[in-house]
């Protein structure tokens, strides 16, 4: 099998400042102001072509930072990510403008996604059909409900045809029928052998959709393996975590937070 994405010892550090003064101090004398925060710490994993990998973990575990790094939006502080193929991040709400109509937004967002004139012409009817907006497509987006807006954004986003796909909480859009339609589209990607990274809190979806799961905790890769294996353990952890009292949950969070400093 061919490697699609190789993540090698990737870390992401953020500088955190409490005040403007700290920020200026740090700018003039690097290291003297502010604190480090390790959003992602020394993560390594390899995805092969056609892998569908779920990224799971509680809030703040580094899922989004990692998926952003895979998508090329955020550069890693250390380590490297080698990708064989085009990468596309499904970003529903990015790149829509409220003043423009639905149909204008299709061209606008497609331009931002790097489509050529011909490609835009080709995909526009497909997007219009997929979005189920009917005549609303000629109305300015500011008149849309949030569900309609997401449907449009989603429809445009999935018209791309990349080799590697990053999906971050994208399938919770619209009503049940639209979710099913979206899942169908995702399965289409899967059947076409795309490499997919799927970030979700919906464990049911992860179990149904993914072949492998990477579990992040406190910015570190806790476990990586087949879906059954990892999810069994992760669900156990979630059950356990839920049962903890508020104080114990806080203690757990504090402990991981402390480890991520420095």
């Amino acid at each position: 099998m061919k490697e699609a994405v190789v993540i090698k010892n990737v870390s992401k550090k953020y500088r955190m400042y409490r005040s403007k003064k700290e920020q200026i101090t740090d700018l003039l004398l690097p290291g003297r102001g502010g604190k480090n925060f390790n959003a992602v710490e020394d993560v390594s994993l390899t995805a092969y072509e056609g892998d569908v990998i779920g990224l799971v973990g509680i809030n703040g575990s580094g899922k989004s930072t990692l998926s952003n790094m895979i998508g090329g939006i955020v550069p890693p502080t250390t380590g490297e990510i080698i990708k064989n193929g085009d990468t596309h991040v499904i970003a529903i709400n990015a790149g829509l403008n409220n003043e423009l109509t639905g149909i204008e937004n299709i061209e606008f967002k497609c331009l931002l996604m790097g489509f050529s004139k011909e490609e835009i012409k080709r995909v526009t009817p497909e997007i219009v059909a997929f979005s189920e907006l009917g005549d609303f497509i000629y109305q300015p987006v500011k008149k849309y409900s949030s569900g309609m807006k997401s449907k449009l954004g989603f429809a445009i986003s999935v018209s791309a045809d990349p080799d590697i796909l990053v999906i971050d909480e994208a399938l919770s859009v619209g009503d049940q029928t639209f979710t099913n339609k979206s899942l169908d589209r995702m399965n289409e990607f899967k059947e076409n052998g795309k490499t997919i990274f799927f970030v979700s809190h919906n464990l049911g979806q992860v179990k149904k959709f993914c072949k492998k799961v990477a579990w992040l905790e406190g910015g570190r890769l806790k476990k990586y393996g087949s879906t059954e294996e990892v999810m069994a353990e992760y669900e156990e952890f979630i059950e356990h975590y839920k049962k903890l009292s508020k104080k114990e949950q806080e203690a757990f969070r504090k402990e991981t937070a402390k480890r991520r400093e420095g």
Binding site: G72, D86, H88, G95, L112, M113, G114
Partner: peptide
């Protein structure tokens, strides 16, 4: 930047 952050935009 935020408008185009998630795309491969020149």
């Amino acid at each position: 930047f935020n408008l185009v952050a998630k795309m491969n935009f020149p």
